[in-house]
Design a protein around this nucleic acid. Sequence first.
DNA 1: CGGGGCTCCTGTGCGC
DNA 2: TGCGCACAGGAGCCCC
Length: 267
Amino acid sequence: MPELPEIETIKRDLENIIIGKRIKDVEVKVARIIKEPSVENFIKGVQNKEIKEVLRRGKVLILKLSAQYLVIHLRMTGQIIYGDKQEKSKIVFLLSDGKYLNFLDQRVMGEIKLINDWRDLPFIKQMGPEPLDKGFSLEKFQEMLKGKKTKIKPLLMDQGFIAGIGNLYAVEILFRAKANPLRPANSLVLSEIKKIYSAIKEVLEEGIWHRGSSVDTYRDARGEKGKFEQRIRVYGRKGEPCFGCGDPIEKITLGGRGTYFCPKCQK
DNA sequence: CGGGGCTCCTGTGCGC
DNA sequence: TGCGCACAGGAGCCCC
């Protein structure tokens, strides 16, 4: 599942590959992925537009074109792969260098929009801070947690609270911080908040360093798998021995999502 | 306002 | 062995 580190990896790859190139044409094989404008206007809107910049906000990938923005959300199984045209592509952009930018998506939950300003999207407007920005300080995190009765794990996954963290990284962050996913946010004391805060930065940076995790279908912009999955401590390890104490890892459902943790190490 | 549950979607893997 | 169902989860939505 592409989360902040995976999208950031794709963003950095694409920066080196496609900036300055033009989209000559686009083939829309699955219309429902294009959320706005109409498919017809989408095609007209991207034709012969230069890719000026690649941006990321949370789990959202943004390509700045000559006038508008191409906003891409990969959701669960979306992939953006540069190179030859791929048979399974749902959307194919033909670039001015003769290569293709393929949008693939097994479960077809991804979304692409062409809009005047990405900052106007409601989902972006209500999004929480970028966890790797300097502005996301310990003090700010402390402030954000105040009065939040929500369990810490779903809270970390709430894009309105903090941007870019999904199920896998939320689970890994809490294991690193030795915090139980069920803890109400406002029950955490400063020493625990500090550990979670540090773990957020560390785990996400480690994820980027290892070019993401490919436990599902994630691939980088060149179609390669990430290596962070080798660093995973708890995700998907139900019943297997905890790397901290050897007790079996437990799996519960929280907010409908599989939540892995060690009840002994995570208090 | 918060939280639970359903929805979308399809390949995989488990149980009977 | 083969079939059928549950499961995977990001985010919008409804409802209590």
